[in-house]
Amino acid sequence: MDGFAKYLVRRLFQFFLVIFLGVSLAFVITKLSPVDPVEQSVSLMTNFGATDPRAVELMREALQELYGLKGSMIEQYLGFWGRVLQGDFGPSLSSFPTPVMSLIVSALPWTVGLLTLALIITWTLGNLLGALAGYYRNNTLLKLSGAAIMALHPVPAYIIGLVLLLAFGFIWPVLPISGGAQMNLQPAFSFDYIRSLILHGTLPALTLVLVGIGSWFISMRSLVSNIVTDDHVVYAELGGVSSSKIFSQYVARNALLPQLTGLALSLGNVFGGAVITEFLFNYPGVGRLLIQGIYRGDYSLVLGVTTMSIVAVAVAVFIIDLIYPLIDPRVRHG
């Protein structure tokens, strides 16, 4: 049990370190900017008409307060931590006066739902095909599907999404290409609403699957072709154990463990892909919120979403780290 406790402590330390460094990084980046966010916001607002100089001065004061830009650098830094811990990033400028946090909270289920679904499909399918391709090296069908998956793998999410959008939205218009569900439907447990959810989610999810499946396929295939030459597999073959049993219990099972660690490590990248995909398909998740915030110059929204996504990815990684020992006995029993 000693080894297990050590593992836990190490993971916990890493978890806090990621959050600490990530949040600090977000703070430092905002300070490196040559642009003053208050001036930027003020000029943005005065564009809409408010030009009374006294009103502008008042607004400047209010914004400095709001953005936590008053006081020394250390005070500002500590203040930033206070806001992160309370989950309070002030009101959004582009959707005034809705708080940034409630925008994030209402967008979060869309992103989490889309990502979880896409990730489960990607991981399962990529690993299954990769393991089969690594074990049955001479199967033509597996070779062909492998070649297709690998050719797609380096293409960025936006390009794959755009091609799908053109194919299923314009050339053969069978799927909705914008939004999370049909506009005129109320969220409910009705057949129509769920059907609409699924239809709207298909293209974004397909994009994420096509983007992500290649790296799982490639790493699983090379893991398996290495494990196949391991002593315990060769021995099972000499023992006349059936090849389906060797595949599932001696090869795939062992190769899945590093792939689970890989899942934790890849979450950051996967989230990045989701940001782009959501924007492309106008999917109402956190990613679209972030990019809209950038286009609209909404300082508190951009800072809030970035910080919260760093925290959220760290939490997800930590959850996978906690599940890992349940599956790998070498960690569980020292």
């Binding site: 330390f13 890493q14 370190l17 990621v18 460094l21 990530g22 990084l25 977000a26 980046i29 905002t30 490196l32 900017s33 040559p34 642009v35 966010p37 930027q40 934790a264 490590l265 979450l267 950051g268 990248n269 989230f271 990045g272 892909g273 940001v275 782009i276 972030l290 990019i291 915030g293 950038i294 951009v302 800072l303 979403v305 970035t306 996504s309 760093i310 990815v313 760290a314 990684v317």
Partner: peptide, 23 residues
């Protein structure tokens, strides 16, 4: 440890934040 911490940070949001503040 520093290396693994960096791996766990999501690249795209950080790059977007950098772009946003630099404009």
């Amino acid at each position: 440890t520093l290396n693994d911490t960096m791996i766990a940070l999501p690249n795209i949001p950080i790059l977007l934040l950098v772009y946003f503040v630099m404009r």
